[in-house]
Simulated scan of single mutants.
Amino acid sequence: MHGRFMHRCLDLARKGQCETGINPLVGAVLVRDGKVIAEGFHSGFGKAHAERALLEKIEPRTSPALSAENAGRYRAPQKIRSTDILYVNLEPCCHTHKKTPPCVPLIIKSGIRRVVFGMYDPNPEVSGKGVEMLRKAGVEVTGPINPVECERLNRGFISVMTKGRPWITLKNARTIDGRYSDPKGGRMLITDETQDRWAHEFLRARHDAILVGVATILADDPRLDVRYVNNPPENYRIILDASLRIPTDSKVLQMLLKGRTIIVTSPDADLKKAEKLAESGVRIIPVEYKNGRFDWLSLWGKLTTPDGEFHGISTILLEGGPKTWEIFRNEKMVDEEVIFIGE
């Protein structure tokens, strides 16, 4: 029984893809007599957590201030029953040094007496402490339930918390005989439409950012967007370009979401060009570049630190070409690799 409702939490949590920044993807459901009576999910960085979003739909008076996304959307308030069960795919938070209030006190105040969670929070300020606080308050807590699936969904959040960098998936396509390009080094279509659709739905649409080296931009001029998906997420496009060689008429710079394009370059690159790109809405991140490599620790720090409207990145899909792949492999920064074999 628990598995069915936890899967619903995961489905809800995915709705926050590319919107929560370095925060986790979290969904919650309230079950009464075997039926879901309310749902909520963390819809964006700085917005209500899943538990609060759910409780405001059931009994808005449990919260001192209504979140913007739930204001004016309620059914008639109803009282929480002692037999109701709250399901959430991540241990409820209890720390206070953040943008939103902690969920554990809210859950206790609401009268919920049973909580089922999917995985422990990897944040050391929370890990195990949220569960402990609930139990001390007399709440029956069950979990972890389906921890492998829950951890898979939040692999980016876990990576940021434990490694200090985004989770990185390397995607490459090759022919049966191992070729990546035609004999002259030019672009070669390898995958078919079925493979392309799968890559967009299960890779591009499920990562916060798509990363390539500038050589890919110069050779292929890709859009680096998400297609074949209804209501695709607004993910970031990251280009590694130490010398700022990217042409200003590149497709990736002509798209409406310029603010979602990031160019990582050397502080010694063309300053006027960098300023012009920044004025057009492109985010320029200067990172020290020596001996053919960026200062990766510095880059990861900048990509996982919220700054204004930039809420950080927790998952990256590494595309590009063999040279970029080799750099990431050699630096041991590839967490998983997906290989497409074409004709």
Rank of each mutant, 00 (worst) to 15 (best):
G213R: 06
D221M: 08
L153W: 09
I107L: 02
L189T: 12
S243H: 14
Y120C: 13
D121I: 11
E51W: 00
E309V: 14
F340R: 10
E51K: 00
V212P: 09
R206L: 11
N70Q: 00
R283T: 07
D33E: 07
M1C: 04
I85M: 08
K99C: 11
A173D: 05
A68D: 11
L12S: 10
P183S: 14
E140L: 12
M1D: 12
P147W: 13
A50I: 03
T248V: 07
P101H: 02
H95D: 07
S159V: 13
R52T: 04
R283G: 05
G21V: 11
C18M: 08
R14S: 10
G156R: 01
L271C: 09
K273A: 03
G321A: 05
L244G: 06
P147C: 14
S266K: 02
I112H: 01
P222K: 13
I327F: 04
L66F: 04
P306G: 05
D249S: 15
S82R: 13
Y236T: 08
T169M: 07
R73W: 01
V141L: 09
R179D: 09
R4W: 03
I210K: 06
T100G: 06
V141A: 10
N231W: 04
A28K: 00
V139P: 07
C103D: 14
L211C: 03
G118A: 08
P77A: 10
K129D: 07
D177A: 11
K332T: 10
Q195V: 05
F202Q: 14
I158S: 13
F5N: 01
T62H: 15
G259C: 04
V226N: 11
P102W: 07
S314M: 03
D307Y: 11
T324A: 09
T265R: 03
V212E: 08
Y289C: 02
I190A: 12
V334I: 12
I238A: 13
E201R: 15
R113N: 12
S43F: 03
K184N: 05
G312C: 07
P24R: 04
S127M: 14
K276L: 01
I108D: 00
E132K: 15
P77K: 01
A76I: 00
H2Y: 07
H2C: 01
G312H: 03
S110W: 00
P233C: 05
V264P: 02
P222T: 14
S82W: 00
E151Q: 15
H311L: 12
L153Q: 11
Y289V: 00
T324N: 03
A199Q: 14
T83I: 15
T305A: 10
L10R: 13
I263K: 08
L257P: 02
T142N: 09
P60T: 06
N23Q: 15
A50D: 09
V115W: 06
I210F: 09
G118L: 02
I168S: 10
R245T: 00
P24E: 05
H97V: 15
D177F: 12
V214P: 02
L12I: 07
K47R: 13
W296E: 12
L240E: 00
D249K: 13
T62M: 13
D225Y: 08
D307Q: 15
F45K: 06
L86W: 05
G21I: 12
K323G: 09
H200A: 06
P124K: 11
R165H: 05
I85C: 08
G34L: 03
K251D: 06
Y180C: 15
P222C: 12
L10T: 06
T261V: 14
G321S: 08
K47H: 10
H49M: 04
D241F: 07
D192T: 01
